[in-house]
Simulated assay, not measured.
Amino acid sequence: MAAVKSPLSDEALKVTGQALQGALVDLIDLSLVAKQAHWNLTGRNFKVVHEHLDEVVDLARAGQDDVAERAVAIGVNPDGRARTLADRTEIPQLEAGYLADDKVVAAVTDVLAQIIARFRERIAATDEPDPVTQDLLIGIAAQLEKQHWMFQAQT
């Protein structure tokens, strides 16, 4: 089995790999939480929030693919398995059943804020070890911050 030789030092690879794996878990779970809310949404603002949740899902799915591919490019195996996600996610899960639009907006606003905080930590951590990964994380964080602003404006 062939392995990708990393362009990074062992220490830089460790820091960068951890940042990418954490980002991957956050983005996979964000896509799942947003889709769960999308399917179970109710309320006066159903259509707007329903469609907005799909934007978050699209962003999260595109970001997770970029993050996973960056990991492989530097010699780190991304782990997006369900068990890994269940064991490592820090995102609070939504209640089962129908979800009122105002509660979804508040929950997604909070989830995005938490993920953004972790992305900013990863951005700081990858400044020296791998500016290329840092740039990727900055781009995703900017998109997450835009979604956070748009959800927060609905509260």
Rank of each mutant, 00 (worst) to 15 (best):
residue 71 A to K: 02
residue 19 A to D: 05
residue 112 L to T: 15
residue 50 H to V: 10
residue 27 L to P: 02
residue 43 G to Y: 04
residue 75 G to S: 02
residue 61 R to K: 11
residue 9 S to M: 03
residue 79 D to M: 03
residue 138 I to Q: 11
residue 85 L to M: 15
residue 122 R to G: 12
residue 30 L to R: 14
residue 98 Y to A: 11
residue 2 A to P: 14
residue 137 L to R: 11
residue 142 A to K: 15
residue 78 P to R: 04
residue 101 D to F: 02
residue 77 N to K: 07
residue 108 V to G: 09
residue 74 I to M: 01
residue 128 E to I: 12
residue 59 L to T: 08
residue 2 A to H: 09
residue 42 T to E: 13
residue 20 L to R: 01
residue 34 A to K: 14
residue 63 G to A: 13
residue 106 A to N: 07
residue 78 P to E: 00
residue 41 L to I: 12
residue 96 A to L: 03
residue 153 A to L: 00
residue 28 I to F: 06
residue 78 P to F: 03
residue 134 Q to A: 09
residue 87 D to V: 05
residue 60 A to Q: 09
residue 39 W to G: 11
residue 116 I to R: 11
residue 12 A to K: 00
residue 140 I to L: 12
residue 87 D to F: 06
residue 148 H to V: 11
residue 153 A to V: 00
residue 70 R to G: 02
residue 81 R to V: 03
residue 101 D to C: 01
residue 28 I to Y: 12
residue 100 A to H: 10
residue 35 K to V: 04
residue 154 Q to G: 00
residue 43 G to Q: 07
residue 87 D to S: 09
residue 25 V to K: 05
residue 64 Q to R: 14
residue 71 A to N: 00
residue 107 A to R: 14
residue 83 R to E: 15
residue 151 F to I: 13
residue 50 H to K: 12
residue 64 Q to C: 08
residue 81 R to W: 02
residue 117 A to L: 08
residue 77 N to A: 14
residue 43 G to W: 02
residue 42 T to Q: 11
residue 32 L to V: 08
residue 133 T to C: 04
residue 10 D to L: 04
residue 82 A to N: 03
residue 17 G to K: 05
residue 140 I to P: 12
residue 69 E to A: 01
residue 135 D to Y: 05
residue 51 E to C: 03
residue 46 F to C: 07
residue 48 V to F: 04
residue 40 N to C: 03
residue 47 K to L: 13
residue 129 P to N: 10
residue 101 D to R: 05
residue 99 L to R: 13
residue 40 N to F: 03
residue 131 P to T: 12
residue 47 K to W: 12
residue 36 Q to H: 15
residue 42 T to W: 02
residue 144 L to F: 09
residue 34 A to G: 10
residue 44 R to H: 15
residue 71 A to T: 14
residue 94 L to A: 15
residue 128 E to P: 03
residue 13 L to P: 01
residue 87 D to W: 03
residue 68 A to H: 05
residue 44 R to A: 15
residue 140 I to T: 09
residue 153 A to I: 01
residue 105 V to N: 08
residue 144 L to H: 08
residue 144 L to W: 14
residue 96 A to W: 02
residue 52 H to Y: 11
